[in-house]
Nucleic acid binder design. Structure first.
Length: 749
DNA sequence: AGCACGCCGACT
DNA sequence: GTCGGCGTGCTC
């Protein structure tokens, strides 16, 4: 390989020299020379770097090493070994791992991600490695998977008699080794203290997790579920994609569990991805109870130590389950045998800043690289997935509701045209809630707008009070008497006169969750009203405490944003109301109708579980809207088919592929000049449709002007080529301008 | 990402 | 006269 061009190395913030000579995806031709060079990836926005391999010291690819990088020493991962000119190379330093920490299939995935999302491989590695694995100092402490009695243990009964917890643990180990996770489930997290004491006295020792800890308790399955499980289990050991369709209550989780058991019994690892908000304690408890196997967790709520423990636990070859959110797709699972993705349509799988990857899409690639099946579960599959299924990429598995005996809730539109609205609530809506209260049941009201009112308006001059840093109005929050911008951090105390005409005649306009909460409290005095949104649940455990105020045998009302649609078991809810349906029907975002239907179906799943039938009411000014009619009369599948043919006609995803070239900066002219100059200076194939410059939905946000070009193609390779060309052309970014590429953007905002 | 090198304001 | 602001450049 020749010398590296300096321009090749230069990296501007968001994107650029994304590397990379693919090492793993396209295996290099046979090398006859012994390797002298280690190709190392460091967790910084850089391409792979070459280091001198000290002879006589073999290093396996996938191991971490300490390497000099400029003036400092950092931890990197050996990606590959090769032969070549070693002059001007610095030598690698300490080797930190005896065995590969990142399995080959994971390194191949990271390489794929770097190329697909035109991101430097080092930045991809940075998101994949937990902070402690990147530290030079802290030695990696291997998680202790299990404990057993020592054969040579000498027990003094009088000692154990005075230590009841140690005695209990000692007795629990009578039948052989027990996984730490299993002991924690039995004795609580503090079991580590008696364990440490027993180990110090030489009574017990750490050992590998026993495979026979896997539960043999069969999971009860109905006919649909059995069929689905049989198909998935039959595919273990090879790459195959499944789409598991079934609404809430149809028993998707049991299918996941039974399939996971089968993979565990083969001695393999299972990766389960869940949306950010879906990883509730109830859900975890259910999984752990059903699978008596180590269940590792990886999500944003963990501290560094816990994260490290799960991550390292996953790196071990023991059969186990890892449940995590988006970034868990990068967990090291050397023995991966099955991937499960719950609620695959959920938007939280797409990272929205920095390295903008889609965990679902990468999980599919990972399954292919690990040669294992992947199951995408959803009641409302994304149009991308439905289109791929149409093309035969997926084996479809359907769960019908009937089989579980639950009753499908009825969805109805509530025509609020010409009706007098009380704080956005129509009289028939209040009547419906009143009936629920009379029956001592619960109602749930959705509105995806927090605060009291989204607009404060001057009644005399028409001025709307705006954010000083954004093109947006300030939202009035009554709870803490402040005006807040929902797009930046700005907040200010109550304003009593118009900033433009000094009039004292200010009005709040529109409704947020706080206002609805207040209106419901007034309409139904004595009935508990619980608000669930980002503001009300800011403090820890706030949500749980609030939900506890609703009693099973007493009426109650919940009001909240999308947060309320997922996770928590609201078994007493028999009426669900969606207030801002029209917003989803008439949004400028072409994905809004898809998301609206997903919300409606999800909410329907929350209403009337078990023996009580549920109702869903959609308050709208457009009761005859064809989209609503299709969804209600013919269901999500017909609705999705309609949206798909619309997208096909308009040439929108999934029938085309999108990428955005975005730039932002304080000086709008400079931002535009940069974007337009880059676009005109870059030769782009005529098969790439380019559209721009387009202002972002909020043109100015947090004092930054944001503009973008949209690139649209029919084939991914063409899109990739165009993005590569743009990146290699953008060497000189003017100061004050930041730019980046968003591949498969979820919104054009 | 870090971290050094490099030219312009208020202070031991 | 120095300490230090963060703008620009570089990392095998």
């Amino acid at each position: 390989m020749g010398s590296v061009d300096a321009a090749d190395l230069r990296c501007h913030r968001g994107a650029s020299a994304y590397s990379l000579l693919p090492f793993l995806l396209t295996a290099p031709v046979t090398e006859f020379d012994p390797p002298t060079i280690a190709v190392v990836v460091v967790p910084a926005p850089l391409k792979a770097l070459d280091y001198l391999l000290p002879d006589g010291q073999p290093v396996a690819p996938g191991c971490r090493v300490e390497v000099p990088l400029g003036p400092r020493r950092v931890v990197g991962v050996v990606w590959a070994l090769k032969a070549g000119d070693t002059s001007a190379l610095k030598p690698i330093g300490r080797v930190l791992d005896a065995e590969a920490l990142l399995p080959t299939s994971l390194r191949a995935l990271l390489e794929f991600a770097a190329s697909y999302y035109v991101t430097p491989i080092g930045e991809v590695l940075r998101t994949a490695l937990p902070p402690q694995a990147r530290a030079t100092r802290a030695p990696i402490r291997v998680a202790t998977p299990a404990f057993r009695r020592r054969d040579d243990a000498v027990i003094d009964p009088s000692w154990l008699r005075r230590a009841p917890r140690q005695l209990a643990v000692w007795l629990a180990l009578a039948d052989g080794p027990r996984a730490l996770e299993s002991l924690k489930r039995q004795f609580g997290d503090t079991v580590s203290e008696p364990l440490r004491a027993l180990a110090t006295r030489g009574a017990i020792e750490a050992c590998a997790a026993p495979l026979d800890a896997v539960s043999r308790t069969p999971i009860a399955l109905n006919a649909d579920q059995q069929h689905a499980v049989a198909a998935i289990v039959g595919a273990l050991g090879g790459f195959q994609r499944f789409l598991l369709e079934g609404i809430t209550g149809s028993g998707k989780t049991n299918v996941y569990l039974a399939a996971a058991q089968a993979a565990l019994k083969r001695g393999q690892q299972v990766l389960m991805l869940v949306p950010e908000i879906g990883l509730t304690p109830q859900f975890l408890a259910r999984i752990e109870a059903a699978l008596d196997a180590p269940v590792l967790k990886l999500h944003s709520g963990l501290n560094d130590g816990e994260r490290q423990q799960s991550w390292l636990g996953a790196a071990q070859h023991a059969a186990q389950v890892l449940i995590g959110t988006r970034s868990a797709v990068f967990a090291p699972l050397p023995n991966l045998g099955l991937i499960l993705i719950d609620e695959e349509h959920d938007g939280s799988y797409k990272q929205r800043d920095g390295f903008r990857y889609h965990a679902r899409d990468l999980a599919i690639k990972r399954a292919q690289l690990a040669n294992c099946p992947i199951v995408l579960g959803s009641a409302t599959p994304s149009l991308e997935t439905l289109r791929a299924a149409e093309l035969g990429a997926y084996q479809r598995l359907r769960l019908s509701l009937r089989a579980t005996g639950a009753i499908a809730p009825e969805i109805r539109v509530l025509d609020c045209r010409a009706l007098k609205l009380h704080e956005g609530l129509s009289p028939p809506l209040l009547t419906a809630i009143e009936r629920v209260i009379e029956r001592r049941e619960h109602a749930i009201v959705f509105l995806n707008r927090r605060g009291f009112a989204p607009v404060v308006l001057c009644h005399d001059c028409g001025e709307r009070i705006g954010c000083p840093s954004c093109d947006a109005t300030l939202t009035w929050h009554q709870a803490d008497a402040r005006l807040r911008c929902h797009h930046c951090g700005y907040a200010c105390p109550k304003i009593d006169h118009c900033p433009k005409c000094a009039s004292l005649n200010l009005l709040t306009q529109g409704e947020g969750t706080e206002r609805i909460e207040q209106a419901l409290q007034r309409s139904f005095p004595g009935v508990p009203v619980v608000r669930v949104d980002r503001d009300s649940t800011a403090r820890k455990d706030g949500l749980k405490r609030q939900l506890d105020t609703l009693k099973d045998d007493a009426p109650g009302i919940l009001i909240g944003t999308q947060m309320l649609a997922k996770g928590h078991d609201l078994h007493r809810v028999t009426l669900a109301v969606i207030l801002n349906v029209d917003q989803g029907l008439f949004s400028a975002d072409f994905r809004a109708p898809e998301r609206l239907a997903q919300l409606i179906v999800q909410v329907a799943g929350r209403a009337g579980r078990g023996d009580r039938p549920g109702h869903v009411l959609l308050q709208t000014h457009h009761p005859q809207h064809p989209l609503l009619r299709t969804l209600i009369e013919r269901g999500y599948r017909a609705y999705a088919d309609g949206l798909l043919s619309e997208r096909r006609e308009l040439g929108l995803p999934p029938y085309a592929h999108h990428a955005l070239l975005r730039a932002e900066g304080r000086n709008e002219a400079q931002v535009l000049e940069f974007l337009n100059q880059l676009m005109s200076a870059t030769p782009i194939a005529p098969s790439v449709r380019v559209l721009g410059p387009l202002p972002a939905t909020l043109k100015r946000r947090a004092d930054l002007y944001r503009w973008q070009w949209l690139l649209e193609t029919d084939t991914r390779t063409v899109l990739r080529d165009a993005l590569d060309a743009l990146i290699s052309n953008a060497a000189a970014t003017p100061r004050g301008v930041r730019w980046f590429v968003d591949v498969d953007p979820q919104d054009l905002s």
